[in-house]
Amino acid sequence: MKKLLLITAFLSTILFAQDHTFESKDDRVNIIELYTSQGCSSCPPADKWLSNLKEHPKLFKDFIPMAFHITYWDFIGWKDVFATKSNDNRQRYYSSKVWKKNSVYTPQFIINAKEYRTWFTNQSFPNFKNQYGGKLNINLNNNKLQVSYFNKNIKNQKIYLNVGILGFDYEINIKRGENKYKTLEHDFVVLNHIQKFAEIKNNKLEIDTTLFNLEKNNKKKALVIWLSDYNSEILQATGGYI
């Protein structure tokens, strides 16, 4: 996604006053991406499955789920309130550039940049393979974000730094479209996502940056950071509730 650096517009208007520190283990933390839409009648079961992971004991330790809402079903009659064109582009990039395919669909699960169709068979939780990922540490204080990473297997390499804010506990009353009259519940919603160029030098990455401000509300949020290479391979991730 070399051309997709700024993923979503910034929201406003508060700072994160608390200090938050998160650290990965040495094994790779797995990334679960769900591409979904409030205008898709097949999506609510996938959204519910993702929501059920909120209380999983290995959440943020072994895996991080994220729901990217897309816009291309908005024409059916209901505009998804969380959808962005950049999420559409991200999904299409996977399909065309990573997997060499020419179609996208919802709901679609992607695990560590690979299509995960097994969910449609039994909706079971995936079996993750242990893989070294290096040590990723992040600290957030007053919107100042410090990221440090060490990987014994990567001496020098240009990569992507991904920063995401996830929202939880949303209930949306759908008034039109395929899910008309339903109240849909959403968690792990990607509210903001930016992607920046970064570079590992001498096995290390050190970045200081300013995090975007967020709209003030009473919803639970989480900060997630993940590193990926130019082939979309997930290197490491960490995060947690803020």
Rank of each mutant, 00 (worst) to 15 (best):
S24G: 06
K101V: 02
E55G: 13
V29E: 11
Q91F: 04
I7V: 08
N218S: 14
K221F: 15
Q236R: 01
F197D: 15
C43A: 08
L227N: 03
D62H: 13
K135G: 02
K201S: 13
W99G: 03
T36M: 08
T71Q: 13
K97F: 13
F128I: 09
N192E: 08
F16Q: 15
I32V: 11
I70E: 01
Y230T: 06
A9W: 10
S148W: 03
G77D: 00
A222D: 00
L59M: 06
S232L: 15
Y241I: 14
Y170N: 06
M1S: 10
K155H: 06
P45T: 01
H193F: 09
N179S: 04
Y241S: 07
S103C: 07
N141F: 06
I70V: 15
L15K: 15
K58T: 13
A113F: 01
D19L: 14
L191M: 13
N127A: 13
D19E: 14
N87R: 05
K175V: 11
A17T: 12
E171F: 10
V190C: 03
C40A: 06
L227Q: 04
K54R: 14
W119E: 05
E185Q: 13
Q157H: 11
R176S: 09
F10W: 15
C40H: 05
Q108R: 00
V29D: 12
E178Q: 07
I207L: 09
A113T: 02
L191H: 09
T209H: 07
I14Y: 13
N218R: 13
N112P: 09
P65D: 00
V224A: 07
K101H: 10
E178C: 03
K25H: 11
K175H: 10
L184P: 04
E206Q: 11
G39H: 07
A237M: 02
K152F: 05
N151S: 05
D208R: 12
K182R: 11
H69M: 04
N137M: 08
I70H: 06
P57I: 08
F75E: 11
K97W: 11
L235G: 05
D19C: 09
N87C: 04
K101M: 12
P65I: 00
E178Y: 03
I111V: 07
I194V: 09
E171W: 05
E23S: 15
T106F: 02
L161Q: 01
K158L: 05
D229R: 14
C43N: 05
R28V: 13
K219T: 07
Q195K: 10
L211T: 02
D47L: 06
H193I: 01
L145R: 01
K219N: 15
V104L: 12
Y35I: 02
V104E: 12
F68Q: 00
C40N: 08
K152H: 09
Y132F: 11
I110R: 00
T210I: 15
T209N: 08
W226Y: 10
F60L: 14
L5W: 09
S148H: 07
